[in-house]
Design a protein around this nucleic acid. Structure first.
Length: 760
DNA sequence: CAGTGAGCGAGCTTCCGCTTGACTT
């Protein structure tokens, strides 16, 4: 045992640092926070100045006792948690919990994990910054107050187990607001004019777009008629050189966005792959808001760029984070060693590493130089001009390695233009008027929500992924696809003096893997917005962060921040509890034309439903809404269609076949047995023949399903989704790989089960 | 696992940020 104990937050960090420090130093990790507000109850003594009641977190008891033992043996304890608000608090909690004597305790911080940085830190210890600790305490207490006072209101007013909080409720509101914007959006049609032109002697057509759009078909047609027999020429050519710079190195948020765009990873997938890369020492820490690169990284990357592409491709750049509330305790996310171009690992690990490598190398490369050419084409008949721009790369620079992805899928291709001169005549080979529709803003994806949250300064790199999953587990939102809307797009095409009209249906605005609000999410947001408008305000976090900063600078007391907030807040809490009424989201959609009964959409015990007939109607009918259907905008037609289930489609042998939609999607049912519908089939239109075919197919499968049956012991050997398995009563058991499922005896099965249960 | 839509009213649910495993399927 060394006489020095260094405590850091992450065990992977501990390992590397121990190597750098060598003899005389033991490095251990605290695994993040070790203490928190009491788990049960509020954990804050409000009457006595909001005194926090801390306890050692259940899963940290072991860590704490190990650290205590190590601290007892050490001469000096070095608290080396991160250099930010949370890190400072961790250091203080460690000092308190381990009962460290000030004269034997030092607080140090590393800006990067390199030998020189660590040795320098050891040379320059300081004391724990109590102002920073108080600022963290204010943050923690405020979050607990908001979360633990708001959530119970939701349990009373809406339903149990719901939650609200400073971060999640605003994130939810972003999604809800966007969805409503989209619902109320009206797509307006317009016509865009595209002309194709040829220069004398060239075979390369130039496609140019008119600088004016038309609202109606008549206007578009009138314009095309003007073009008949018109002559065209190059009105102007403008060439200018432009520079393009590489994107900055990755932070958590940009890594999540780019991995989603380029690799299709979810934010949690990205984080767990990055975690593995970090633990294998391949990349720097993956939860960071810093764009800083260590001088070591700058140097080695410069060498690598020069080696691979030559000195003219190298440009050393250092980046500074601009995002609100950034704490910059770590470096940007980069390869630990740029010289590692390839790594060992799974495919996903390799792909993510590759992305990080390219982004890091590219950000240390020279700007690309391009020549942009803007051409305007005019005619003798009208003042409007056709515009086209071309781009030629003069020097590729960083583009050799990496181009950042974009969220808007519109890829305006940059045409390669033929040689043209001002005044040069052009021949038109066709002019089209294409009907298009204005598009609503895109729905949020996981990654674009994270981007927005970061812009608003809401949430931290360590919580982005869990914020999204909280909203999903609460049932506030789902991740899903939205089909596009079918729109008629007409096209007028002028060629050889004739205008030809064609019309086609086009699906526009389809979206995949987007965050869609559910009924309960809308209800909760409306309730919170009506009663706690300030907390749902997009600027709420930014506002309290300002106060936390004042606390951190010693310009304001932490408990003053809390009491200033809590006074008005708690009043709102009391007020909203005044009326004991339950909040209902209920909407009368219309009247069923057949029965004359009202059709109502509302939330019931098991989720949103359609009810036909009033509450006192003995024959009232119920049916659940499907995923994605919202109480606030479901139409009468859609509701009636739902009510048409279950539907009798015919008979199979002596049994009636009915169809309906259950928890697991649409199914056919006969004689108490269920079969899921296939792709392209729906319960409203499926025929008797199709249903019978489905039933027979599933009967065949169920015969194959049973490999062996031992009725005496109640054990079956079955073929399941994941291969053969054992079933006894309600429990399933794995069959050892080396055994042949078909050859298992009853005794073999009993042995397997006994073994598995013993393990438990 | 494929339908339920109220109820005696126990005891519980919940926040945000820092960190990793321990669990099965």
């Amino acid at each position: 045992m060394g006489e020095n104990l260094v405590i850091v937050e992450s065990p992977a960090k501990a390992k590397t640092i121990e190597k750098f420090l060598g003899k005389g130093y033991t490095v251990k990790s605290s695994f993040g926070h070790i203490r928190d507000l009491k788990k049960k109850g509020l954990g804050i003594d409000i009457e006595n100045g909001f005194v926090p009641q801390y306890e050692i977190s259940a899963d940290k008891k072991k860590t704490v006792s190990e650290l205590a033992a190590a601290a007892a043996k050490a001469q000096t304890v070095w608290l080396a948690s991160d250099e930010d608000r949370e890190g400072e608090a961790i250091a203080w909690h460690l000092a308190e919990t381990l009962g460290l004597m000030p004269e034997r305790t030092r607080r140090i911080v590393f800006h990067e994990i390199t030998k020189t940085a660590i040795l320098e830190a050891i040379e320059n210890p300081r004391d724990i910054d109590m102002n920073l600790v108080k600022a963290q305490q204010a943050r923690r207490v405020l979050d607990r107050l908001v979360g633990f006072e708001l959530s119970p209101i939701l349990w009373k007013k809406i339903q149990p187990k719901l939650s609200a909080g400073r971060v999640q409720s605003v994130a939810l509101r972003l999604i809800v607001d966007r969805e409503r914007e989209i619902t109320s959006f009206e797509a307006t049609p317009y016509f865009r004019i595209e002309g194709t032109f040829l220069t004398e002697g060239s075979k390369r057509p130039v496609k140019a777009v008119l600088d004016r759009k038309f609202d109606t078909e008549a206007e578009a047609r009138a314009f095309l008629e003007q073009c008949i027999g018109a002559s065209f020429h190059v009105a102007s050519i403008e060439r200018k050189e432009a520079h393009r710079s590489p994107a900055p190195p990755f932070t958590t948020s940009t890594l999540q966005q780019e991995a989603a765009r380029k690799l299709g990873f979810s934010v949690s997938q990205t984080m767990s792959i990055a975690q593995r890369l970090y633990e294998s020492g391949l990349i720097t820490y993956m939860r960071t808001d810093s764009m800083n690169l260590s001088s070591l990284a700058l140097n080695t990357t410069k060498e690598k760029v020069t080696e691979l592409f030559g000195a003219q491709y190298s440009k050393v750049r250092n980046y500074h984070t601009k995002t609100k509330g950034a704490q910059e305790a770590h470096e940007a996310i980069r390869p630990t060693y740029v010289s590692n171009m390839e790594i060992e690992g799974t495919t996903t690990e390799k792909r993510l590493y590759n992305l990080i490598w390219k982004r890091t190398v590219a950000c240390q490369m020279a700007d690309a130089r391009v020549e942009k050419t803007d051409v305007a084409i005019a005619s003798d008949r009208f003042a409007e001009r056709f515009l086209v721009s071309g781009e030629q790369i003069l020097f590729d620079g960083f583009l050799k390695v990496y181009i950042e992805g974009r969220d808007d899928e519109e890829n305006e291709e940059q045409a390669v233009l033929p040689k043209m001169e001002q005044g040069q005549p052009l021949r038109s080979t066709g002019i089209a008027a294409l009907q298009r529709y204005t598009q609503h803003l895109p729905r949020y994806s996981e990654a674009s929500l994270v981007k927005k949250l970061e812009e608003l300064g809401i949430g931290r790199p360590s919580t982005y992924a869990s914020t999204v999953s909280t909203l999903i587990t609460r049932g506030y939102i789902v991740k899903g696809d939205k089909p596009g809307v079918a729109q008629t797009c007409c096209e007028l095409y002028l060629k050889d003096g004739q205008i030809v009209r064609t019309e086609k249906k086009e699906m526009t605005g389809a979206e995949k893997k987007k965050l869609l609000p559910e009924n309960i999410g809308l209800l909760v947001t409306d309730f919170l917005a009506a009663n706690f408008a300030d907390i749902l305000n997009y600027g709420f976090t930014a506002g309290v962060e300002e106060s936390f900063d004042k606390v951190a600078k010693g310009k304001m007391r932490w408990d003053k921040v809390i009491s200033d907030f809590y006074g008005p807040f708690h009043k709102e809490v009391d007020e909203s509890l005044q009326d004991r009424e339950h909040t209902h989201a209920e909407r009368v959609i219309g009247i069923d034309p057949k029965s004359g009964k009202p059709v109502i959409a509302r939330i019931g015990r098991f989720g949103p439903l359609i009810q036909k007939g009033t509450a006192d109607d003995p024959d009232k009918q119920f049916v659940s809404l499907n995923k994605g259907q919202l109480i606030e905008n479901i139409t009468l037609d859609e509701a009636l269609q739902l009510l048409s289930l279950p539907r009798t489609v015919g008979h199979y042998k002596d049994f009636e076949i009915t169809t309906a939609i259950g928890r697991f999607g649409p199914y056919v049912k006969y004689n108490g047995k269920y079969v899921s519908l296939g792709k392209g089939q729906d319960p409203y239109t499926i025929t008797e023949e199709q249903a019978v075919a489905l039933i027979e197919e599933s009967l065949e499968k169920s015969v194959k399903k049973v490999i062996a049956d031992f009725p005496e012991s109640g054990i079956q050997v079955l073929n399941g989704r994941f291969g053969p398995y054992l079933k006894k009563g309600k429990d399933n058991f794995k069959i050892p790989k080396k055994k042949d499922p078909a050859a298992l005896s009853e005794q073999d099965c009993l042995d397997i089960i006994a073994k598995a249960e013993k393990k438990k």
